[in-house]
Amino acid sequence: MGAGLRELESRLIVQKNFLDDRMVLAFNLTVTDDWRDVPRPGANDNDPLDHAWLKQSGMNLGLAGSYRFTSGWSAGLELQNERGFEGIAPFSASARTDVAYYLGPSLHYANQHLFVTATYLEQLPLASDYAHTSPDFVVDGRTYAANFERRRVRLKFGWYF
């Protein structure tokens, strides 16, 4: 929550471990609703009161598996399906704005105190842009709308105190 942003995020995590917890399968469902305080279209820049709350929502479905192949080291694969919606309507097909898919590997290391997870995700050529009918927004099956990158690199560090 900030001066021009209100966001509500809900997440459902389902995890199942196999092989003495060395293999992990996980599914995440994340639903976000946000309100952004933005100037109205055509607003006078000198009028700070001419603004409105833009409502958006998103739904991410993540499916991932990892296997600890040796002490402290795990390798995995992650699939993300990200969906954007106009308004507060995360389950409404008629309000869809974007749909994109990402797939990529991850590598995780952990010892007694430190853990590091590196993930590389590449957008799959399966995207749709319902908000923009111009072909420029989806190129070779990939959307380049805001928040939909072609490639993503995620690096997480953690320290157990």
Partner: peptide
């Protein structure tokens, strides 16, 4: 070049005590 960041990170990690 930024792709080297995660590679460097996982190479840097120390074995546990």
């Amino acid at each position: 070049r930024f792709l080297l960041v995660p590679v460097a990170a996982v190479c840097w990690v120390q074995p546990s005590q």
